[in-house]
Each structure stands twice: as C-alpha cells, then as structure tokens.
C-alpha cells in the first residue's frame, strides 16, 4: 500500500470520526441558540428589538472547548487504535493533525453558514430579531480566520494535555495543563484578547483592531511549535495495552 495513500486514509478516518461527534455538538448548540432566541423574542420589551449575537459569535467558545475535549481524547482513541492496526505513530500523527485541520475548516464554515442563514431570515422575514453585524468584509474574514486558528489551537492544546497524562500520569500531567494555559494565554494575546502586558510589563499590548498580520503570524508560530512538540512526544511513545 502506498504511503501517501495511507496518510490520507488515516486523516480521513480521523476527520470522519470527529465529524460525527461534531454533528451532535453543532445540533445541540444550535438548539440552545434557538432557545435563547425564543427567550429573547418573548422577553423583549414592546417596540424595542433586542440586538443579539449571531450563531457564529455565539458558538466561538463552545466550539473551542469542544475541540479541546476532542484533542484530549485523541491520543486515547486514535493513536492506540491505529497503532494496533499496524499504522505507525508517524502516520497516526499526520492523520490526527490533517484530519483535525479539515474538521476545523468544517467547524468554522458551518457556524458562518448558520449565521448567514439567520441573517437572511431576519432580513427577509418579520422575525423581531436584530443580530449584531459583522461589519466590513475584511472584518468578517479576519473573524473567520481567527475562529479557524483558534479552534485548531485549542485542539492542539487538548492533544498536548492528553499525551501528557497518557505518557506521564497525573502528577506530571498537571505540568502539561500549566503549559496548556501558557499556550492558550499566548493565543489570546496574539488576538488581542488577553492583556498579558498587565502581568509582564515589557510585553507590548497588541491592539484588538490592529494589524491582523501579527495575529495570524503569531498564531501560526504557536501552532507550529505545538505541532513540533506533539511530534516529539508521540514519535517513540509506548502504546498502553
């Protein structure tokens, strides 16, 4: 069997498995969102249309946490099963990273699409709801890229925690949680969310509405570091029976 084909197969399998989980997740999240909308509709005072966040904004943190949890399970579910079926750690690693990237794309596009549908519905029907607007196209694109990189980073961080616990047990596992918090803080910093400069004075503050280039480059560097660390941690890892 061709090596490249095997990589793609493993990546597809891993994407598909997590895709099935994500359908559940999105379904439940959408149901919650709709309930919130109904609640707002009923509680809105007469004559004033409440302005609320669309599904895209609504789902941001939940999706990140969903990805974190998937990442934590990755080593337990995907690594073990694949090595038992004769797939190398390297192929499983590439499969997890690749499959998850595709999943991140899916989980960025779906909320965007749902948000678009919501927007169209309020525009062209008489629903008494107004969603906060995205603003310009560039703002919109930036948000989508942020969303994508953010959820992918959360998965990587989850994967890091999972491998930490899997390999080293719960005491050293805590150190991995510490590392995970550092990574997520940096991630927030690059996107102008966490203001580390209040903690470490010499670090310049990144303006939330500044140049997206710094944010994207910073985020990509962080992802690359995480990917490299994961490869190192899983390269010669023993599989538990």
């Amino acid at each position: 069997m061709k090596r490249e084909k095997l990589n793609a197969k493993v990546a597809f399998d891993i994407f598909y498995e997590q895709f099935k989980w994500s359908i559940w997740f999105l379904g439940i999240l959408a149901a919650i969102h709709v309930s919130v909308l109904i609640y707002f509709e009923n509680s809105g005072s007469v004559g004033v249309e409440p302005s609320i966040v669309g599904f895209f904004e609504f789902s941001r943190y939940s999706t990140a946490i969903f990805m974190l949890v998937c990442g934590i399970m990755a080593v337990y579910v995907f690594m073990t099963y694949h090595v038992q079926q004769g797939v190398t750690r390297k192929d499983a690693y590439i499969g997890i990273a690749g499959g998850t990237f595709v999943l991140s794309l899916f989980l960025t596009l779906m909320p965007l699409m749902l948000n678009g549908i919501e927007f169209l519905l309020t525009e062209y029907t008489a629903l008494p709801l107004t969603f906060t607007s995205f603003g310009s196209t560039s703002e919109w694109l930036k948000e989508a890229v942020f969303y994508l990189l953010n959820i992918f980073t959360y998965y990587m961080v989850g994967w890091l925690i999972g491998v930490g616990y899997y390999r080293f047990g719960w005491i050293i596992g805590f150190l991995f949680i510490a590392a995970a918090i550092v990574a997520l803080t940096m991630n927030g910093y690059f996107w102008g969310e966490d203001d580390i400069s209040t903690v470490i004075p010499w670090i310049p503050t990144i303006q939330p509405h500044g140049s997206p280039v710094i944010s994207i480059v910073g985020s990509l560097v962080l992802i690359s570091v995480l990917l490299a660390v994961m490869r190192m941690l899983t390269k010669r890892m023993a599989i538990k029976l």
Partner: peptide, 17 residues
C-alpha cells in the same frame, strides 16, 4: 519493526483489551 510501516502492517497483535 519499530515505526516501520511495512512491517507493522504485517503484525497483528491481539491482546486482552
């Protein structure tokens, strides 16, 4: 054998999982 895709594919290890 270790991390050798051809060899690993030839080995099936069934254990008390």
């Amino acid at each position: 054998v270790f991390e050798n895709p051809d060899k690993m594919q030839q080995v099936m290890f069934v254990y008390d999982k």
